[in-house]
Nucleic acid binder design. Structure first.
Lengths: 232, 232
DNA sequence: CGCAGCCTTGACAAATGTCAACAAACGTGG
DNA sequence: CCACGTTTGTTGACATTTGTCAAGGCTGCG
């Protein structure tokens, strides 16, 4: 396998402190593949054969039940996904599909578990990564249970603004129908929610969002670090 | 500190395989306390000073935002809680209060992190515990986003039935207002939801629940191991 | 006994979803 | 480059779900 992406992966928190030899073992065992958009990479319920790392493009984690589907997360470079299923050797709880043309590294779960048993620094890095994932998931639960869909959208926009460098104008990273699903609402409801935020200075044109007065929007959204902070 | 509970804690997956010496260090550093009901043990946003373990009684994890409050989990003996905040040395994302008179072990987070750095088996146990917590949280997200409140209640009852040994009659473990909050609905809505399940053979008297025909209820609830299974 | 908190019920309001229609954006093949 | 068909986004009308408020019954406890 071409190893040009090794340095990119090596600097991930997950791999940064592990033994070089173990890292090489993982890389030797892994595959790199390019996928077109809309390819289902994994399906919920199946055994976790590979730990996945997105090198470029983007991947959606989603889940279905009783004919309904919901977007749980969007993964962007460079990060891993479904680490928990890998270390527990348990079935995937979510499915994954590419959104764009994407380059993905597949590390056999078996090898990940083997090195996890051997490399203590790797095991520690996994702890921190999982703790982060868990806490992120708790934040999402709080967002869902404590806020209306309008409040979720408002806070999402404020988070995106921060991500875009604090600029008062930025582009949505995902299409609106996926955003709606991510926020736990229908596309129609999202459409109306954008309009409902107009009195707070939010205007939308395509996927371009403008926030005229951040304070005004914040007064409505009431962002809270214990829900919206994405760093700790 | 009285060490009569040490064996109970020692057998927890989290501590079962660590070095005896390290376990003793943790136990020596820790406190055991009895709390009356309705005591707020920790408050969201505060630094994570202690890893908590419930020896007896029960503890509710909850969170507030903008005047609203929601129940995120109920912890029963014998299990730990807020492990993620402890290992990340980050603020609690949830508050905790005793529901009953409860006996709690408090292990200083500092000590937990120190032993985590030293004891590889302990680090590995933490990985598995966090992976479990994370996956449980993903299940809850799916439950919330993919199901109506009536469906959530129906599946909750089926899970409780399993927990009660499959008997067609069992007691609710928490009061209804808390159950409502846990399921993401109001007490009034829960009251009506119970009635709405009557056509599927569910009858309720106080906190006693009878499920006349499990198949009937399952046909409505459509339980799914990727949401409702509590073992993997 | 009497108070306080929980649960239930009814009437109503707000939030959200559904369906249908249409417009706009996008991609593909000619 | 354009024409076409498909998908996405929007809007309106309406249905369903869920929440809110107020009242009353029940229960447990001092």
């Amino acid at each position: 396998m071409l190893d040009s992406h090794h340095p990119d992966i090596r600097v991930l928190d997950l791999f940064a402190n592990m033994e070089e030899e173990n890292f090489q073992t993982l890389m030797r065992a892994s595959y790199v593949q390019n996928f077109p958009p809309q390819i289902e990479l994994i399906t919920e319920g199946e055994p976790s054969d590979f730990l996945h790392i997105v090198i470029s493009g983007s991947v959606e984690l989603f889940s279905k039940w009783n004919g309904r589907e919901t977007c749980v997360a969007t993964i962007r470079p460079i990060s891993s996904f479904i680490l928990a299923a890998t270390v527990k050797n348990a079935p995937y709880l979510m499915s994954a599909r590419t959104l764009d043309k994407s380059r993905i590294v597949l590390i056999p779960s078996q090898n990940v578990r083997a090195i996890f048993d051997e490399d203590n620094n790797f095991a520690r890095a996994i702890v921190l990564e999982l703790a982060y994932c868990y806490r992120s998931s708790i934040r999402k639960t709080k967002d869902l249970k404590l806020r209306t869909s309008l409040e979720r959208l408002a806070n999402y926009l404020l988070r995106q603004q921060i991500r875009a460098g604090g600029d008062d104008e930025f582009n949505l990273q995902i299409e609106k129908r996926r955003l709606a699903s991510y926020l736990g609402m229908t596309p129609e409801n999202l459409s109306r929610a954008f309009k409902a935020l107009k009195p707070y200075g939010v205007t939308v044109d395509g996927n371009r969002v403008m926030i005229r007065d951040q304070n005004d929007l914040e007064k409505f959204a009431k962002p809270n670090p214990l829900i919206d902070d994405r760093t700790t």
